[in-house]
């Protein structure tokens, strides 16, 4: 009994890194733009597809290459999303931006369906090998690899945000857009860069999902969007550590409930978990300091 619980918890937490990455993407864009980019998860999955197609077209087979191309392609998609949904719609029209990101979600989704004839495609695992046994606990190597890549991506992102000039500018823009501009920071460039960086992150997440499920399907997009948003809120809007912890938490939670209550009821409990947070801890795990207006 106990071991089953632990097993599903561990599997869930390992795969939960993908939720963390998607959550970070939502949170970062929200932090900088104060708007939601609903197309984010679809761009991530779209990037993962592109990676596969590009490498496949070149006759390559390397899973690593697929990962890298997925990240690069998703970065480009991120920039396109910035141009089409954020750059030219005035900040005073948040609904316009919201709706165009929905349009983008549909567009990317449809391009994928169009390119793959709606059939799921196999995705190469990052690593294959025997399971690692820890007592009675089995750790799947591909899951472990997913976890490792996720942690590596988050570490690089944190370094980028806190150690580089771009990171400094991003944080300045997210806190004081006007003052940042006065300091000579090119607002549009920083915003665009944020979209590219979060896009790359999303591409990695998309490829990781493909690798851990073994295939990629457009059907993944909506659940991923919802889970990513939930992770963002549970973690606390704008909080990267919050998104990381919440992603792992939601991953573990849903896998355990799937084990006990079955796949049809699983998501119902995830929603309830969100409501519990909204009622008892509306600021999320790591509530950001309240803003002044």
């Amino acid at each position: 009994m106990m071991i089953d619980f632990l097993q599903s918890l561990v599997d869930g937490v390992l795969v939960g890194t993908t939720y963390s990455l998607i959550g970070i993407g939502f949170t970062l864009i929200f932090g900088v733009m104060h708007k939601i980019n609903l197309s984010y998860a679809s761009a991530s999955v779209g990037g993962a597809y592109c990676g596969l197609l590009l490498v496949g077209a070149a006759g390559g087979k390397s899973a690593l290459l697929v990962f890298l191309m997925a990240a690069a392609a998703a970065g480009v998609i991120g920039y396109v999303v910035y141009l089409t949904c954020f750059r030219f719609i005035p900040a005073s029209h948040p609904l316009g931006t919201l709706m165009s990101t929905v349009g983008m979600l549909l567009l990317i989704d449809e391009i994928v369906v169009h390119a793959t004839f709606g059939v799921p495609v196999a995705y190469p695992p990052l690593y294959e090998g025997p399971s690692i046994e820890l007592g009675e606990l089995y750790i799947r190597p591909d899951y472990l690899m997913v976890f490792a890549v996720g942690i590596a991506a988050m570490t690089v992102l944190t370094l980028l945000l806190y150690r580089s000039r771009l990171g400094l500018a991003t944080r300045a823009v997210s806190q004081q857009p006007v003052a940042a501009q006065l300091c000579g920071i090119a607002l549009y460039r920083v915003n665009a860069a944020t979209f590219v960086v979060t896009g790359v992150l999303g591409g990695i997440a998309g490829a990781m999902i493909g690798a851990s499920v073994g295939m990629l399907s457009p059907l993944l997009v909506l659940p991923l969007t919802v889970k990513g948003l939930i992770v963002t809120v549970i973690g606390g809007l704008g909080s990267i550590p919050g998104a990381i912890v919440a992603g792992l938490m939601v991953g573990g939670f849903e896998n355990v409930l799937q084990y006990y209550r079955g796949v049809t009821e699983r998501d119902l409990y995830v929603m309830l978990l969100l409501f519990v947070f909204l009622v008892f801890r509306p600021g999320g795990l790591f509530a950001a300091k309240s803003e002044r207006n």
Binding site: C85, I89, G96, M99, G103, H114
Partner: peptide, 22 residues
């Protein structure tokens, strides 16, 4: 045919860029 769905999302994006207030 298939292209319709592609156009659908793109037209929403275009519409919101042209008329952000609807």
């Amino acid at each position: 045919g298939d292209w319709r769905n592609l156009l659908f999302g793109a037209l929403i994006v275009l519409a919101m860029n042209l008329r952000p207030h609807g």
